[in-house]
Design a protein around this nucleic acid. Structure first.
Length: 474
DNA sequence: ATGTCC
């Protein structure tokens, strides 16, 4: 397909429908944010996704869009489950329910400063991270794993890892419905048994941050955020378990394409109807892996709380926990009709507007917090969902890669990067020099521009900007 | 993202 972008507004581009696309592509971005690296096939992927059976409205891309497995990262696609709509593991990604959790400490930067070194040392010593490695909570075996896969963050809290109030501030109250542990293979379970409560690697991190700007005082107050306040942001996912679930079900779907007579322009878009046996199996396994990811973030939050209590005697409350790699069954109005859709968000964050019935009472007035992590040495943003978001209530999820890992390794040395960050007053507790170099700030889009474009496109509004004080790097 | 190739 020949990809031609037509500008529809300052933050909106269109890829017109052409055979075999079923709907147009819509890219929310500025010219500067559009994928430009040589060989970046993200826009071609937006068009490819538009060919999926049952897709409605458009194949969307958020301002942080970049090349991914089958679907672009930063992609949103919804299929009508009653009109042969498909589910595709590539539309969720390998790191199922990867997401962000933000906690707010009851202290400002200056009073914490004398204890900052101790805090970072405790976090550095207690937060498991890096490839492989153990987690904070060793599960006893498959029976206990199945409880966690069904119960998610709620199971973690019921097991003593957190307080009930945490669950009110988790997407879906900490549990994605429909988990089917019987669809999670033994290899996935074995990979997951030792990893609950661990960051992993890549762009995952635990960061101590401070609120350096408030754009919307009312929403910030509703979220429990105030100027100069110290926060903790945790970005991680479902580790080896989610990866194995994706691998196992992609294999099944690749073999099922012919059975269902589905033709896709890229094998990485392997998919089956939502209502088919392999579709149901994947969604059950995906929900189970999502619950693993949510329990994982719950355990890490508890470790952060413990560190703040020991280092500074300070309480830490959950602001919100939201995934940005999911497929969820949701009801949306399309062409004047309420339809049951399978909404794929891959590197895209759900963004519920004020008054949405799924929000807890204390967030209903403000809307859902949208958490946008930057990368090391850069800001992160708290945004909020807005009405009139036609991308099925979705927003960006972070900065978005522009250099490949290989390019980053050629350009940056981990040791030098740590020195530069420490010179900026940012404490760094890395897990490997290589991992640090791969995640250099220069390897990513400008998160400030991504957040500004997200607001300009009407996907979410700015609430607060956070700057890093210390990073524990996966 | 990922026991970075069963």
């Amino acid at each position: 397909m020949d990809i031609t972008l037509v500008q529809d507004g300052p933050f909106r581009f269109r890829i017109d429908q052409q055979d075999p696309m079923r709907v147009p592509g819509v890219v929310f971005a500025t010219r500067d944010l559009l994928p430009q690296a040589a060989g970046d096939k993200a826009l071609e992927q937006v068009a490819n996704v538009a060919t999926l059976p049952g897709i409605v409205r458009a194949s969307f891309a958020m301002p942080d869009v970049h090349w991914g497995y089958g679907f672009p990262i930063g992609g949103v696609a919804a299929t009508d489950i009653e009109d042969a709509g498909v589910v595709s593991p590539g539309g969720v990604g390998f790191d199922i329910s990867c997401g962000v959790r933000l906690l707010a400490a009851d202290i400002e930067c200056d009073p914490l400063a004398p204890n900052m070194r101790t805090l970072m040392d405790i976090l550095g010593d207690t937060i498991p991270r890096g490839m492989g490695r153990g987690g904070l909570w060793k599960l006893k075996g498959r029976p206990q794993m199945e409880e966690l896969l069904v119960g998610g963050a709620r199971y973690a809290v019921e097991s003593g890892h957190g307080v009930p109030r945490d669950l009110a501030r988790c997407e879906d109250y900490g549990v994605l419905d429909g988990a089917d542990p019987s669809q999670v293979g033994q290899r996935a379970v074995e990979r997951g048994l030792q990893q609950v409560g661990s960051l992993g690697s890549g762009n995952h991190f635990l960061e101590v941050q401070a609120v350096d700007r408030v754009y919307d005082a009312e929403a910030a107050a509703a979220f429990g955020l105030r100027p100069d306040q110290v926060c903790v942001m945790i970005h991680c996912g479902s580790r080896g378990l989610g990866h194995q679930v994706c691998t196992d079900h992609v294999r099944v779907m690749d073999q099922s394409l012919r059975t269902y007579g589905i033709h896709v322009p890229d094998r990485q878009l392997a998919c089956v109807p939502v209502v088919s046996p392999p579709g149901r199996a994947y969604l059950g396994a995906m929900a189970a892996a999502a619950n693993y990811g949510r329990a994982n973030r719950q355990l890490l939050a508890e470790a952060a709380r413990h560190a703040f209590a020991v280092a500074a005697g300070v309480d830490v409350d959950l602001v919100y926990d939201i995934s940005h790699n999911t497929a969820k069954i949701e009801t949306h109005e399309v062409d004047g009709v309420q339809r049951r859709l399978c909404v794929h968000r891959k590197g895209a964050t759900r963004a519920l507007p004020p008054g949405d019935p799924s929000l807890p009472e204390d967030l209903a007035g403000a809307g859902q917090p949208v958490l946008v992590p930057g990368t090391m040495g850069t800001a992160s943003y708290v945004m909020v969902g807005t009405p009139g978001n036609d991308a099925f209530l979705s927003a960006c999820h972070g900065a978005g890669r522009v250099w490949s890992r290989h390019q980053a390794l050629r350009r940056v040395r981990g040791e030098e990067l740590r020195s530069e960050l420490e010179a900026q007053g940012i404490a760094v507790r890395p897990s490997s020099w290589r991992g640090l170099a791969e995640e250099a700030p220069g390897a990513y889009k400008d998160v400030d521009a991504v957040a500004t474009a997200t607001e300009g496109a009407g996907l979410a509004r700015l609430v607060a900007r956070l700057h890093p004080l210390g990073v524990v790097k996966g």
